[in-house]
Simulated assay, not measured.
Amino acid sequence: MTPDTTVQAAGCVLWRPAPTPGEPELCLVHRPKYDDWSWPKGKLKRGEAALDGALREVAEETGCRAEPGPELSTQHYEANGRPKQVRYWAAEAVSCAFSPTDEVDQVLWLPPTAARTHLTHAQDRPLVDELLTVLHHTPH
């Protein structure tokens, strides 16, 4: 890897049906190392397919097994002085058993409006609307 090699990562906008009918709840993770709230995501392992990596990261960070849906937008930004690309998928949480780790110490399930304002990084916010568009056009 050189300083200009793009870091490849993947994650999910994880959702579950709300306890009452209406908008879904979205899962945000808190990373104490950065003290931020974001979507579950992480770097891909060598040779790992992006969707496999996204689902692995969801499982590691949230304790959730997820059913992947459509791919969402890919984000490109700089992290630690290197270009980074993160591919995202919509994913429905099937079963969850969260346990805090050094990497992720909290998860929050929030309705879309609250999730949008709670996300630390501006580039994460458009994925809320993208997920809602996908969910409104996909039979569950």
Results as ranks from 00 to 15, higher is better:
residue 122 A to G: 08
residue 130 E to H: 05
residue 118 H to Y: 04
residue 96 C to L: 12
residue 97 A to R: 15
residue 140 H to L: 12
residue 19 P to K: 05
residue 75 Q to L: 15
residue 16 R to Y: 05
residue 84 K to W: 01
residue 99 S to C: 02
residue 14 L to S: 04
residue 45 K to C: 07
residue 100 P to W: 10
residue 78 E to C: 03
residue 87 R to N: 07
residue 35 D to L: 06
residue 1 M to W: 10
residue 1 M to L: 12
residue 86 V to D: 02
residue 43 K to L: 11
residue 11 G to P: 00
residue 129 D to G: 15
residue 6 T to G: 01
residue 54 A to D: 12
residue 38 S to L: 04
residue 137 H to V: 02
residue 109 W to L: 15
residue 137 H to G: 14
residue 133 T to M: 04
residue 125 R to D: 05
residue 53 G to E: 11
residue 16 R to N: 05
residue 82 R to G: 08
residue 116 R to G: 04
residue 45 K to A: 14
residue 126 P to E: 06
residue 30 H to F: 08
residue 84 K to P: 00
residue 78 E to P: 00
residue 122 A to V: 13
residue 5 T to P: 00
residue 29 V to R: 00
residue 49 A to H: 13
residue 15 W to A: 06
residue 27 C to N: 03
residue 46 R to M: 05
residue 18 A to M: 03
residue 91 A to L: 11
residue 25 E to I: 01
residue 51 L to F: 05
residue 72 L to I: 05
residue 107 V to E: 09
residue 98 F to M: 12
residue 27 C to W: 00
residue 3 P to S: 13
residue 93 A to G: 09
residue 126 P to D: 10
residue 27 C to Y: 02
residue 135 L to P: 04
residue 123 Q to A: 10
residue 135 L to Q: 09
residue 25 E to G: 01
residue 56 R to Q: 08
residue 42 G to M: 06
residue 86 V to Y: 01
residue 95 S to T: 15
residue 13 V to A: 11
residue 40 P to R: 00
residue 104 V to L: 12
residue 59 A to V: 02
residue 12 C to D: 01
residue 106 Q to C: 13
residue 117 T to C: 05
residue 101 T to Q: 14
residue 41 K to L: 07
residue 75 Q to T: 10
residue 76 H to R: 15
residue 86 V to Q: 00
residue 135 L to E: 07
residue 57 E to K: 13
residue 54 A to T: 07
residue 104 V to T: 09
residue 91 A to P: 06
residue 101 T to V: 05
residue 118 H to V: 02
residue 136 H to C: 08
residue 13 V to R: 03
residue 29 V to M: 04
residue 128 V to N: 01
residue 89 W to N: 01
residue 39 W to P: 01
residue 33 K to D: 14
residue 89 W to A: 02
residue 8 Q to V: 03
residue 20 T to S: 14
residue 56 R to T: 07
residue 137 H to I: 00
residue 40 P to Q: 04
residue 124 D to M: 02
residue 49 A to M: 06
residue 107 V to N: 08
residue 39 W to Q: 01
residue 76 H to Q: 11
residue 54 A to C: 09
residue 26 L to I: 06
residue 49 A to L: 12
residue 10 A to F: 04
residue 63 G to L: 13
residue 85 Q to C: 13
residue 84 K to L: 13
residue 126 P to F: 07
residue 69 G to V: 02
residue 136 H to N: 14
residue 43 K to G: 14
residue 36 D to L: 09
residue 90 A to L: 07
residue 138 T to R: 14
residue 50 A to P: 09
residue 49 A to P: 05
residue 19 P to E: 10
residue 72 L to S: 08
residue 13 V to M: 01
residue 24 P to M: 04
residue 61 E to S: 07
residue 9 A to G: 15
residue 107 V to C: 12
residue 139 P to T: 06
residue 90 A to G: 11
residue 15 W to S: 04
residue 67 E to W: 14
residue 130 E to V: 00
residue 41 K to Q: 14
residue 33 K to M: 09
residue 27 C to M: 06
residue 32 P to D: 11
residue 127 L to D: 00
residue 67 E to I: 05
residue 69 G to S: 07
residue 128 V to W: 00
residue 45 K to R: 15
residue 80 N to L: 14
residue 119 L to F: 00
residue 124 D to Y: 02
residue 120 T to S: 15
residue 9 A to P: 10
residue 71 E to H: 07
residue 113 T to A: 15
residue 124 D to A: 10
residue 116 R to F: 12
